[in-house]
Design a protein around this nucleic acid. Sequence first.
DNA 1: CCGAGCGAAATGGCCACACGCGTTA
DNA 2: AATAACGCGTGTGGCCATTTCGCTC
Length: 388
Amino acid sequence: MMEEESSDAGASGWARVCDTCRSAACTVYCRADSAYLCTGCDARIHAANRVASRHERVWVCEACERAPAAFLCKADAASLCTACDADIHSANPLARRHHRVPILPISGCLYGPPATNPSGSLTATAAGGDTADGFLGDETIDEEDEDEAASWLLLNPVKNSNGNNNNNNHGNGFLFGGDADEYLDFAEYNSCGDNQFADPYNQQQQQKQQHQQHYVVPQQKNYGGGDSIVPVQYGEGKTHQLQQQGYQLGLEYESSKAAHSYNGSTSYSVSVSSMDVGVVPDSTMSDISISHPRPPKGTIDLFSGPPIQMPSQLTPMDREARVLRYREKKKTRKFEKTIRYASRKAYAETRPRIKGRFAKRTDVEVEVEQMFSTALMAETGYGIVPSF
DNA sequence: CCGAGCGAAATGGCCACACGCGTTA
DNA sequence: AATAACGCGTGTGGCCATTTCGCTC
C-alpha cells in the first residue's frame, strides 16, 4: 500500500529536493531553519554544534515527499503529512481504522553514532517508525528484547506495575507503569508479519542487519515447556524480515509512548493492521458478545474450537478471567516458526532433496553413512557389530 | 520398572497455485 | 467512463523421506 505511493512519488520526480545541496531528495524538515534537508545535509548541519543539534525536525511525508509529516500511521508504518493522511485513510473503511499518532519532532544527531546519554534515547527514538537510519545502537535493541522478555513473565502486568516495575525499566528511562499491558499488546503486534514496508531505508536496514547478526537475540521464551526446543535462528528470508519489522515497530512504540506522555492523554489504542482484523484487541474484548466472525487465515482464533455463545451479562470476575485468558493466549501467540526438536531440524537439513522435497537416500549414501558410523565406533573404542 | 513395537508428529526447501494490483485494449 | 484481459509480484500451502517422540503392551 504505502510502498507503492512512496515509490511512485520518488520515481515520478516529484520529491522535494534538499534546500541545501539541491541534489538529493529531502528526508527531514527543520522547523528552526524552515528548510527541507536530505540525510547528508541534515547530518552535516545539525551535527555542527549543540545549538544546531537541538533543532527540531520532522520526517518528510513518505507519500508525497513534499511536506512535513504530521502523523505516523502505525498500520502502514509510514509518516504522512496532513493531506496524504486524509487521502489515504479516507480511501476505505479498513484504512480508516489505521491508528495514527502525531509525529513528534526529532532533535539531536540522527545519523551519527548512538547517543551516549541513556536518557536521550527517548528523544532519539521519538523519530517515529521510519527510524531506518540506524541511529539506534545494540544496547537499545537488547534492552527492548529484555523488556519484552520480562513483560512475557507478567501474568497481570497492570497489577504488577507497581511492585515489579524494576523488571521493566532496566534503567533506560523506559517507564511502563500501568502501560505495561499496552506494551504487551504492542509486543504482540510486533510479531505480526503483515506490515510489509519495503522502503529503501528498510532494505538498507535489512542489509545492515545481515552483517550485524548480533542484533538478533535468540528467543529465550518458553515455547511450551519442551526440553528439546531450540531458539529460532533469524538468518535470512521471511523470518529475518519479521524480526526487522518487529524492530521497527518497536521503535514506533517508543515514539507513541513518548507521545502518550507528551500529550498527557490516557487513551492509547493498539493499531489494527489488515492482518489483525481477526484478532480481537483488548479494547474491544469486553464488547464481544455474540458475533465472532471467522478470522482469516494466519490469525489465531481467540476462542478456538466450536463457537461459544458468550453470555450477554458477564460478571466482573468472569470478564477479568476472560481478559486474563485472552492475554495469556496473546502472550503465547507466536507468528514465527518455532523449532520444537533440534534433532529433527538437523536431520532435515542434512537430508537429500529433489526440488525441495525430501528424497530417498540411495544405497550408496546409506552405505557411506554406515561406514562412517562404523569408523566412528572404532575410533571411540566400541566393539564393531556386523549389521549384515 | 524396563524394553520392544508401532503410529503419529515433525522437519526444510521448492514449486504450483491463488490473489491483488496495475496497465492496456 | 466502464469493463475485461493480461502481466507481474507476492504470499501460502502441499509435497516428499526419514527420524524421533510418545504411547501401549
